[in-house]
Simulated scan of single mutants.
Amino acid sequence: MGDKKKVLAFAREPGGADTIAPVIGQLRKRDRVEAILLAKEYAGARFAAAGLDYREVAWADESSLRQQVAEIVQTERPDALLTSASSRPQDDMTEKYFWKMGGDLQVPSLAVLDQWQNYILRFSGPGAGEKLGYMPTCVAVMDETVRREMIAEGFPDERILVTGHPRFAALRAYGERGNRATARGKLAALGIDPEAVVVTFVSEPARRFFAAEEGFDEASTLTALLASCKPLAQDRKVEVVLKYHPRNLPEDFSAVHGPEDGANLRLHHMQNQLEPWDLLLASDLVVGMISILLVDSVLLGVPTLSVQLGGGNEGRCVPEKYGAISVVRQTALLPDEVAALLTREEYRRQYLKRQQKFTVVRDAIARIEDKVYEFAGAN
């Protein structure tokens, strides 16, 4: 181990952890470098779900965080840094301090983007004069569209590398071995009728984090979805599964009134009882706002719908941005769209054909892995 190059990796947000986890797994499998993985808050559970060992760190508060990151880098003396690029500056600055310290110590850093939005926010500090003030050596992005958008927003072209999204490379492998019947069986083990129509709502902590700017939130969206499913439940069983985001809390849904006991329509709260991809694959319809899980659902071939009631910002949902799915912005239109996707076979078939328009860059894990080896001097 002593003569191996060392890569120090970090993530905090669940989406960021899911993004770099497949890369860490591959680095460790090939064993050409020593890959040390640090987690903060939400990321630990996602790394554990991926079967990755990670290091527990007692992270300092913001007043001492920059110094703590500096000490970690100086102590570990990595040859390269690998991080997510997920945290807003008002939430956490750890990623950004790693990039800054890497630059100060001439340790190359690779940050992997996990979403098609808020590019500037991810690489800026909280102050007015800190726009794009925290840049890694290289940013790995999902596709050419993202690269063009980032350049238009002021990012330096030479620091952007189109690699594809490693999460989707892992999803592709899951989809090839995944089995819908097996996934439905896992739902049955949790008390959900496998013979019923299963509608999954993939939630996000919108009310606390972005409802003011977007115009919609998780509770009102779920309420509208339940109302839209009620007519369908007159002659069939409908199971609505509420998939919590890791940042969602039960009180986020305190205003949602579930169906009456004994009705054909039931609501199930799903926190971490089932892996997200199993839940998506087992669903007859996946509904969400702008969650990355809507992308996963599209790629798994499950009918997928974005609901942004009252929202006016175009292109916030990635598959919508690429013309692959519909977005419902008016409550009155939601029941017909839900019914069409669940009961009209030809409409559903054409809709799924449309979803196939959304494709992703392949071999993302290998592309990022190669860049890590280059940065670490392990080629």
Rank of each mutant, 00 (worst) to 15 (best):
G129L: 13
I160W: 02
E76P: 08
A263N: 08
G311M: 04
Q115R: 11
F210R: 12
A188S: 14
A9V: 09
L38T: 12
G129V: 06
E62L: 14
I325R: 02
R208S: 15
P166K: 01
W99H: 05
V7W: 02
S203Y: 11
A189K: 11
S254G: 09
L81T: 02
R66T: 05
K371N: 04
N264Q: 10
L161M: 14
Q68A: 08
T83S: 08
L249F: 15
L299W: 01
S297Y: 00
R348Q: 11
R147A: 13
A224E: 08
F358R: 02
H269V: 03
F253V: 06
C229G: 03
K230P: 04
D114K: 01
D143A: 09
G44F: 08
A35S: 13
E13D: 11
D296W: 00
G262M: 08
V197I: 13
Y373Q: 12
L52G: 14
I24S: 03
I192G: 00
M101N: 09
F216R: 03
Y42H: 13
A152W: 02
V238E: 01
G185C: 09
Y119Q: 07
P78I: 08
E320C: 12
R46F: 10
E369G: 07
E345Y: 08
P231W: 02
R147S: 12
N272C: 08
A224H: 12
R367C: 07
R180V: 00
R180A: 03
A219D: 10
A128L: 13
Q67D: 14
V198I: 13
R247I: 09
W277F: 02
Y373W: 15
A45N: 12
G15Q: 03
H269C: 07
C317L: 07
A35H: 04
V202P: 02
F375S: 02
I20A: 04
E251F: 14
V241P: 00
L300P: 00
R367G: 03
P89C: 12
K321T: 10
R184W: 06
E56W: 11
G25C: 05
G103D: 08
D143F: 07
G127C: 09
K4H: 05
A212M: 11
N272H: 15
I290F: 10
V338E: 01
A173C: 10
W116A: 12
R207L: 13
R147C: 11
D278V: 01
